[in-house]
Every structure is written in structure tokens, then in C-alpha cells.
Design a protein around this nucleic acid. Structure first.
Lengths: 231, 231
DNA sequence: GCAACAAATATTGTCGACAATTACACAAAG
DNA sequence: CTTTGTGTAATTGTCGACAATATTTGTTGC
């Protein structure tokens, strides 16, 4: 299996230099996209052979996946991909609400004017795409993630950035893909994004946090509602 | 170097089964306590020899330290212990404020009555010790951590538990030890703890989160003040 | 047919050696 | 004296093999 192509999008992302890095990226993508099924057992010998690397190198890659909580290891038993459950999804969103809310508050305090301008431009761009496609759209989904990434980075808080971009957002993307979560409240979400940016531009940290928390909570409740309907 | 003695206190803690587990615990303790200095470079051959294990096993242990952000690795360069900076400490407390605030809100919603009783008992115990020693005390410091651990666990949210107990609190303890942070507001903190438990017992999640955030923010501001004085 | 135990198989953990990369020491040039 | 370049030494990354543990298979007894 080739190790070249890089299928990743993450602001924390560094260029992969070592073999284990590249395998890690491949596996990350395959898990997030569901090509390696959630909850499935990982066979070290099997994967090592598939990637044509030694088990040591593969284990190094697995360690990094474990670091972002995409797999879980038990001593002398092995690794499993985390499984996607509704409870897990809700817990994830609650955690996001806390962290991104604070990140948003910090962003209002710490973002440079340039960063704010750049966010406004991005939002405009998203608005145009929304005009064209309205409803569901790949760009909306990716656009949403981009928006959140920029705010997180804008907090200038390395702890928040590491936890959110380095760990939680891989899971967020995984759930989005595997549960087929298209937002269904795109125009609404776009408005909320605008409000949030305005609060940041006004340097109103308290409001910015409040709005971000409401934004994520709304998204969570939307999911809860859908789940309830399916029963 | 012997690998037997277990010097750890963490609710997420599982019995170490593998050699790498034991070495990880030893290193964790040595880093948190400052025996291995913050910011210092880690030599794999040197440490492996000291523990009388192979480099592979040591690297396995290092991977776990990296997982809780106690060391940082650069490809082809090596590992360093994270260094303790004032900015890092403040960022840590801001992150704690967000996460523990939410954990406290969830605890108010999800704790069982038994858990609440158990918290009350613990607080009483701490109160007695405070009567005796008043001022600075080992028990106060450990008691404070115990209090926070219990609330985090009470959230019943695995994400919050993992991030806080598995990652952030190692850093918290490291900073406490290395910066010699004795609270200096012990009686005040005790009162705040009481208030928080009351809010949880009343199932008032909103108030519980508010109080916990104020509690941690006060602690952070206390640190900022001390730092300012030293200049 | 089912349960409990035993042997065989497969998987994970650990080891030591080699390859690739980086850091260091020293010499030569400006 | 500083700086640049080169060669050596040290460190990290990767590999394949062996040991320890878990899982599966097969067998025996009821």
C-alpha cells in the first residue's frame, strides 16, 4: 500500500517525516472515513503486512491513534477502533461546548485584527456558496469545520488548540461521516456564525462564549431530536 | 532501578500489567515531582540503561507520557519534558475552568445520591483536618485534588474524565509541585467547595458550573497576583 | 449435547541489531 | 575571532526474532 497521498485537513497538522507518521495519517483517514469500521479489532500483523512495514513501526502509528482517542488498547489483548454510540456523540458535544465556548471567549480577547478580517472573508465566501447550493453541501460541512478551527486557533491557547484540533475534532469528523450528519440547519448555522464573529470583533468575550455554546448546544439538540424521531 | 513501588494517585489509574506500564508510572512520578527536570532532554539509551530495559520498551513508556502531554517529541531529534512557564500555567487554568465548569454542571445532573453523600463525607473530613492544621497542609493540597477528582468523575462523561484526569491533572500536579504553589486561600477554598457541593445536591447545574468556574478563576487570579508581586 | 480441562495456535510485549538522521568537534578560510 | 564545511560520534527510527500472554481448538467426562 502506497504511503504518499495525504488525505488530511487539520490546522495542527505537521508534515509527516517518518514512516510511522505516514502510516498514522493513512490509518487516521481510514478510521475517520469508516473504511476501517468503528469498533473493529485491529490486527497488528495483518496491518503491518498490508502497509509493508514492520510491526514496530505499525505500533508506533497505533500509539498516535491512541493519543487522539481513535483506538483503545488493552494490555496483552490488542487494539480496537472506538465505536460510535449516541451517548458518545452527546458526551463529545458537551465537551465541545465547554472547550469551544472558552476558546471563543479567548478568541475575542486574543485574536489579532488581521485574524478577524480573515474570518470575515471566510464567512463571506461561505455565504456565497450557500447561495448557490442551498440546503446540503460538502462545502457547508467543510466550511463549518473551517470556521470552528479558526476560532479555536484564534484563542491562542495551546492547551485548547491541542485538545480540540489534535483530539476531539478527529472524533467529530468521524461521527459526522459515519452517522451521515448533514446539518439540516445550514442557514441558521450561518447566521449564528455571523453573530459569533461580530461578538469577537466587538471584543465581547462573554457574549462570544455564550453564542458559541448556544450554537453547539443547538447542534446537539438537533441530533437528539433526530435520534428520537428514528425510534 | 526497581519497578515495583507505585507512587500514583489518579482515579483513572489502572493496575500496571506490562513492563512499559511500570516504567511509565515511574517516569510520570519523576517528572511530576521534578526529579526529572522540566524542559530537560530525554536520552533514550540513558534511561533504558537506568531502568534495565530495552529501548523499545522505554519508547513505549515515552509514548504514554506524550499522550498526557508531559513530554514532547520531535522526529529524529528526541523527547523533552514540557517546561513550566507562567503562560502555560494560565492556559492550563483557563482550560480547566472550561472543562471542570462543565463537569460540575454534568455532576449536578448525573451524580447519584450515594456519590453526593460520599462527597459530603469527604468534605467533612477535610474540614476537620483544616481545624487541626489551619494554614498550609499536605492534606489540604491532596484534599483539594480529591475534591476535584470526585466532581469530575461525578459528571459521568467519559470525554471529560479522560481529558481532565488522564491529561490535565498530571500537569496541574506538576505545576503545583514545581512552582511550590501552596494555596494561601485554604479556608476560602473550603467554603467554595461547600457551596459547590450544595449546588450539586440541589441539582442546580447552572449554579454548580458558575461556582466551579469562579472557584478556579479565583485560584488563577491568585496565582497571577503572586507572580505580579514577585516582579 | 454440554462443561471443563488441555494442547495448539495466534497475538501481543520485549529484545538487540542495523539504518537513517541529527548533533558535535575540529579544521580551514575569511 | 567568527564562520563555514567536513567528518565523526551519538541519537533516533525501523527491522526481524523470541518470550509471554491470550484465544481457539480439540478432547474427555458427565
Amino acid at each position: 500500500m502506497s504511503l504518499d497521498f495525504v488525505p488530511l485537513k487539520n490546522p495542527t497538522h505537521l508534515a509527516p517525516v517518518t514512516t510511522a507518521d505516514k502510516v498514522y495519517e493513512q490509518l487516521l483517514h481510514q478510521i475517520v472515513s469508516g473504511k476501517i469500521r468503528a469498533g473493529s479489532k485491529i490486527s497488528e500483523p495483518e496491518l503491518a503486512k498490508k502497509f509493508e512495514i514492520s510491526r514496530s513501526t505499525l505500533r508506533e502509528a497505533l500509539n498516535r491513534l491512541e493519543k487522539c482517542h481513535l483506538i483503545e488498547r488493552k494490555a496483552n489483548v490488542g487494539s480496537r477502533v472506538v465505536d460510535c454510540s449516541i451517548e458518545g456523540l452527546l458526551e463529545l458535544y458537551i465537551t465541545r461546548e465547554a472547550l469551544e465556548g472558552m476558546a471563543c471567549r479567548q478568541a475575542a480577547m486574543n485574536m489579532t485584527d488581521d485574524e478577524i478580517v480573515s474570518m470575515r472573508e471566510m464567512l463571506e465566501e461561505h455565504g456565497k456558496q450557500q447561495d448557490l447550493k442551498d440546503g446540503i453541501s460538502y462545502y457547508q460541512e467543510e466550511g463549518d469545520v473551517d470556521f470552528h478551527y479558526k476560532i479555536i486557533l484564534g484563542s491562542h491557547n495551546q492547551q485548547l488548540i491541542n485538545i480540540l484540533c489534535g483530539q476531539l475534532y478527529h472524533l467529530v469528523r468521524m461521527y459526522r461521516i459515519q452517522f451521515g450528519m448533514k446539518s439540516s440547519r445550514a442557514t441558521r448555522a450561518f447566521q449564528e456564525h455571523s453573530q459569533i464573529i461580530q461578538a469577537i470583533a466587538d471584543r465581547d468575550g462573554e457574549l462570544a462564549e455564550f453564542l458559541m455554546r448556544r450554537h453547539i448546544a443547538a447542534s446537539r439538540k438537533n441530533i437528539e431530536r433526530k435520534i428520537a424521531e428514528q425510534i
